[in-house]
């Protein structure tokens, strides 16, 4: 268990904006159904969202997609401001949220520059037929508390526990380990793994793309100094100015 540091690489060159990651996340993590009124109230909960930006003028217009989810920052601005330690950093580099401690001041949400923290404005409700669909490994959150992407910590826990039981180690790229969004991505945009394991895909990509000389890697909104565990790879496009702007 020790020495792990979970991280993700998002290759924007591969992202088509298909939103399968969003759907996968909804069903894995017992996220309440986001219907139209909820979207209009701007209270929809999407632990991962695909932001869409337009570039250029019609007809020479291009859609740019960027999936944004909790960046699991090493210097997370949300952590120090929580008065009740509902959010803190665990030993595996994850920024975890303890639902039962949260009193709902929403300070963390204000201090998160990525805006990936969500508040339960209403008590979540599912139609009767959906009740058996809920994931038993994930808490159903009540109203009045914050939630956010956990890197599907329940999957990490389960695989780690199983590996320990069998005396093996957690395998990089194991579908049982990967968060739901990574498994659902049809183009392989999202890569998940242990950044401390130099053999893992994420570590190799980080090494070549973020620290390498001509790499495409960057952290989202680096100026904020949050040290995210998520690395974005720039779109391979001569005019990809938008991602540049966020660099």
């Amino acid at each position: 268990m020790d020495g792990k540091k979970w991280g993700m690489v998002v290759d924007l060159d591969k992202c088509t904006g298909c939103q399968s990651c969003v759907v996968a996340c909804q069903s894995e993590n017992n996220i309440p159904i986001n219907d139209e009124p909820l979207f209009n109230q701007r209270r929809a909960i999407e632990w991962i969202r695909v932001e869409r930006y337009w570039e250029g003028e019609f007809p020479n217009i291009k859609a740019r997609f960027i999936p944004v989810f909790c960046q699991q920052c090493d210097d997370a601005p949300c952590e120090p401001v929580c008065p009740v330690y509902a959010t803190y950093h665990n030993s595996e580099g994850l920024n975890v949220q303890v639902y039962n401690r949260c009193v709902g001041t929403r300070f963390c949400a204000n201090n998160c520059p990525y805006q990936v923290r969500f508040f339960n404005f209403w008590e979540p409700e599912w139609p009767e037929s959906f009740h058996n669909q809920l994931n038993p490994d994930v808490t159903v959150r009540s109203r009045g508390i914050m939630e956010k992407c956990t890197f599907c910590v329940q999957r990490i826990r389960r695989t780690s526990r199983d590996a320990k039981k069998n005396g093996t180690s957690v395998e990089d790229g194991d579908r049982a380990l990967n968060p739901a969004c990574v498994n659902a991505c049809p183009t392989g945009t999202l890569v998940f793994g242990d950044l401390n394991d130099s053999e893992s895909n994420v570590a190799k990509l980080t090494e070549s793309e973020l620290h390498g000389d001509h790499g495409r890697g960057y952290h989202l909104m680096e100026d904020y100094g949050t040290n995210p565990s998520v690395i974005y790879l720039k779109k391979v496009d001569e005019d990809a100015e938008l991602e540049e702007a966020h660099h």
Partner: peptide
């Protein structure tokens, strides 16, 4: 100091 932004540090 609290904000920990690199340029302010």
């Amino acid at each position: 100091w609290y904000g920990k932004r690199p340029n302010e540090q």
